[in-house]
Design a protein around this nucleic acid. Structure first.
Lengths: 331, 331
DNA sequence: CTGTTAGCGCGTTCAG
DNA sequence: CTGAACGCGCTAACAG
């Protein structure tokens, strides 16, 4: 692996001149530039970003921590981040936390050690520590998808309360009175907010809220499955189910198939997060759809603004709307 | 951001001692270690991987280039890579090439400049250049999912010929004589191989191969859609369709729904690559399923062996089996 | 337009 | 068991 010095020697110039050619900085005579470029080509020289970054204190790299890259919602979001980053000349390092605080902690350290210029984070729980650690370290950070109460930090997320509110209200408008909601873990803001939106809609409709109708598990198919089994075995069986994310929806559907209950004839089922069109053969579920890709790009743009040092007066909270897509599963 | 020197000064030791504490190398008295650790904690010191890597010539990072992170097959594969890498203390940098040779070239350079220790690559076309460039640069590389003819390189892939052969043979056993196949771009080995497996099965069954029944497009829903439209408009309409990947299957299904043809009553449809259970509500398609996650872990393990410097005598080609999963879409 | 000097933060080498 | 000196490959800050 040739170094900049070897290129310089071969081209008969100083190494800084080679540096200037590589980075298109400063003034170089066309003739010198050509000599240098020739030497670079001949030696197959590849600049060492490590050394460059060590000196310049910029890595042109950002870290993205999501909870599960296997979930299409996060993949789409990641894709949005990557596209925006790429356009601005940044590389993205992805990490999966699997909703584990320990993994989050670990990856956070890896990324900070790698001197990423900025960080995009879907926090595992509404954990304050990680964010403060990052801020203390001086690295710009944007929180994605979830709220972190009581910390001042840039955030890009969707309006989960409103999404759940719309879903619930729609079910009520169809005449449902017994509506159950199956949500994620307590402390995960999206899971909490969706329950809040549900409560809001029911209160507005003057429907008494039965706490037995509110299930809290995880954002996984397994959890969706077991919450559904519990729900349909309630003394007063609900006539409609709200699944608080796509994986819960899948698990719920599996459970209902097993007990041979038809959707929507025997029970209505609506969910959060659409699956991407590219993965769906029979669009079936009524859902509150979130603009995952836009979340990614907006977050990256916000981070870039911070990186460019545009000192905005305060931290921003960008809240994107959710859209109700009505299909057959709601009857 | 404190440096190792500041920690050293605060602890009243030399900076090398701090280095030894961080890396658990050499002998340190318990007392000194404690002093150092205290200083590290107080200053919130985070070691700078850049400097470390510059010196040690190891980044503990590998690059993974896939064609489409949006495709669950590749996400699953990526997940396998990440898990295996993580366990061995490596970080993974993901890149999407979108089947574009230009993007591949660009990302390749970025990764090499970042001094990744190794590279995992799903090549865009069966392009020899990229591989040779990497090998010339001296970075270990493992090719994933696809064959690169005429280059000696470690490879982990599935048996596409056999998968398509099994699918085709199965259709033949059901009595189909007019079978069309819709595959990806010419030059992409998986797309080529699947057509070969199809030919092999038909030849064995002494069915005359009509070249009009062989479609070559892309591994996308759009392409699947248009190939399907063409297929069903053939003078002698096929009675069965083989989609060479999951996205083509989705596009095909969409087309068939639009023209109101029922699967499997009006036409049989089988595919390659299952969608992950977590994303499927109604398992429906007969498919040749590939062990994507295992591909990822095996590839990473192979790369790790190269990184550990275990000089194996020759390059390896690991070929994983595909499994035929029979469901309703084949009738 | 080009070169010199001096580090970036760390780990290897060798000497206490 | 601990430390001093040096250099990894590159670029910021000055000179010329």
């Amino acid at each position: 692996m040739p170094t900049i010095h070897e290129v310089a020697k071969r081209a008969g110039v100083g190494s800084i001149t080679v540096s200037r050619v590589i980075n298109n900085s400063g003034y170089i005579s066309t003739e010198t530039r050509e000599r240098v470029e020739k030497a670079i080509a001949e030696l197959g020289y590849v600049p060492n970003t490590l050394a460059r970054s060590l000196r310049s204190r910029r890595t042109n790299t950002v870290g993205l921590m999501i909870t599960d890259i296997t979930n299409p919602f996060f993949t789409t979001l990641a894709r949005g981040v990557e596209d925006a980053a790429n356009e601005a000349g940044y590389t993205v390092i992805f990490c999966n936390t699997d909703e584990s605080a320990a993994k989050e902690e670990k990856y956070l350290n890896v990324l900070l050690q790698k001197q990423v210029d900025g960080l995009l984070l879907v926090p595992t729980q509404s954990r304050v520590n990680s964010i403060q650690q990052i801020q203390k370290h001086g690295t710009p950070v944007v929180v994605l998808d979830r709220r972190i109460p009581e910390v001042d930090v840039d955030t890009v997320r969707c309006d989960s309360v409103d999404g759940a509110y719309q879903l619930s209200k729609y079910l009520v408008s169809l005449g449902h009175q017994q509506i159950a909601i199956m949500s994620g873990a307590v402390g995960v803001s999206t899971a909490d907010d969706r329950v809040d939106g549900y409560r809001k809609a029911l209160e507005e409709a003057r429907i008494l809220i039965d706490e037995h109708y509110i299930f809290r598990g995880d954002f996984t198919p397994d959890s969706g499955y077991s919450m559904t089994i519990q729900a349909i075995n309630l003394p007063l069986r609900p006539t409609a189910l709200i699944a608080a994310n796509n994986f819960i929806t899948i698990g719920a559907m599996k459970a209902l198939q097993e007990v041979e209950m038809d959707v929507p004839d025997d029970i209505a089922l609506v969910g959060f997060d659409d699956l991407p069109p590219a993965m769906v053969t029979f669009p079936f579920f009524t859902v509150a759809s979130q603009p995952a890709y836009q979340m990614g790009t907006r977050a990256m743009q916000l981070l870039l603004e911070r990186l460019e040092g545009k000192e905005m007066d305060a931290f921003q909270e960008i809240i994107l709307p959710t859209h109700l897509i009505i299909r057959r599963s709601s009857g």
